[in-house]
Design a protein around this nucleic acid. Sequence first.
RNA 1: GCACCGGUGGCGAAGUGGUUAACGCGCGAGUCUGCAAAACUCGUACGCGCGGGUUCGAUUCCCGCCCGGUGCUCCA
Length: 492
Amino acid sequence: MTLRLFNTLSGQLDPLTPSDGKTLRMYACGPTVYDYGHIGNFRTFLQIDVLRRFLRLAGMEVRHVMNITDVDDKIIRNAAAAGVPIGAYTAKYEQAFFEDLEALRVERPEQIARATEHIPRMVELVERLAEKGAAYRTEDGSWYFRLAAFPAYGKLSKKDLSGMEDGARVDVDEYEKDSARDFALWKAAKPGETSWETSIGRGRPGWHIECSAMAMTYLGESFDLHAGGEDLMFPHHENEIAQSETATGKQFARHWMHVRFLLVDGRKMSKSEGNFYTLRDLLLKGYKASAIRLALISVPYGRQLNFTFDGLIEATNAIERLRTFRARLTDGAFAAGENPVLQAAAKQASVDYREALADDLNTAGARAPVFELVRSANTAMDQGQLFIRDRDAILAVLKDFDAVFDVIEDRDAEPTRRALAWAEQAGRMGDVAPELLARQSITDEQVDALLAERVQAKKQRNFARADAIRNELTQKGIVIEDSKDGVRWKRR
RNA sequence: GCACCGGUGGCGAAGUGGUUAACGCGCGAGUCUGCAAAACUCGUACGCGCGGGUUCGAUUCCCGCCCGGUGCUCCA
């Protein structure tokens, strides 16, 4: 099954295929580690995770490289303010970033590339450009890319630079550039700033050269796919193309994928708007990591997603339906045999699910056949018309669903526990929702003990006591389900 | 100003030139239950932003308009 993925470069749906026929080589722009990640960041990484998981479900191998920008203006500024070396400053946020990815079940790329560990490769690339006359050094020792050297500039973002004036806005530090649009490849060291002594002088890399150099290091001069947030299309990706293709004379990435922005309550998320949320903020408010994951991936990557708390609740409830359903299948006792109607339904769901994803990663469309199967299987179970082979066929569909969505298997306790531990240590306990604390106040063993007592009470038809226990548990976020197969409970 | 994306039920959202416009959440009624929960059944858009056009026929194609968002500067 081939994925047809919108290609920003061609402006149409193109099949995404590995040029070597085997392993898809992809590069995705990672974070700048100067703060905790917010949910907008994570929507992008989550959607790229959907991509790589689907490719592997479809039988493709993936070699995915992600950079970590661990040197830039903000980092230098913040580290200086905190009075620590940039390495110490970024290590904390890099670790937090990976913890957050883990909480959201985002798979680790095959290769992580830190900018500070690839300085020589960046310097080489600048030298290569200089040899071709596409890079020049200014008086202060910085290096710039000469836009005039790359006539195709603008082909990705479809910008016609000829109509654009060299703006009035000229950075005071950049007055020496040949043209206002020429961009920095290498920034000369300023006193006291972190810098590297290299053959092109003392300084530090520009942001764009970083990605070009690292992508080529791990994937070669030409590779299959480059992905990132839509905001990176211009100028970052455009600049990457210009410098890379000028240096090598080859096409840089064949396919470009851009994840659309996330809005919060219909507005772009920003600290000044007061609608800015990190993953940790949401976990402390009591939302589950799985719900956040599902909410952020259920709207296909090519569309803006309007994030709301109602959406998070919707996702929570949808996941509950799936989890309850699967528990019914795994806990129940079924007779041998099969129901041809369900066999056909499972097969159809599996096909429809994959086809939706293969169509430009239509996650919203892919959910539908799975939920349809849930309903028909629930109906069959109610009627005693679901058999062992049906159960197995349906569980296989759920497994495929989780291979990409990864929300049915309940792994929510750990991220919440870790967020609470972090809040404690970071002095953020005041941000923890009271309901979350109430939920944490009872252990699994205590729940089991109370439920055992309730079963006894019910047997003696002491419903007052039974209901009192249920109420007490409800207060602590425990939901009870009495079924023919026994009592099931879960945490809200 | 220029460019791009979108406007489908109470909310999110899929989709199609032509039978009953997916799916999820919510809500209402019922079945089941000691009562719940879960599950199931039924109901919940006389309609797919507005106005034209093309067509035997448009929510789906074309044009215009309105509204929302984003990009054009650091930003996932």
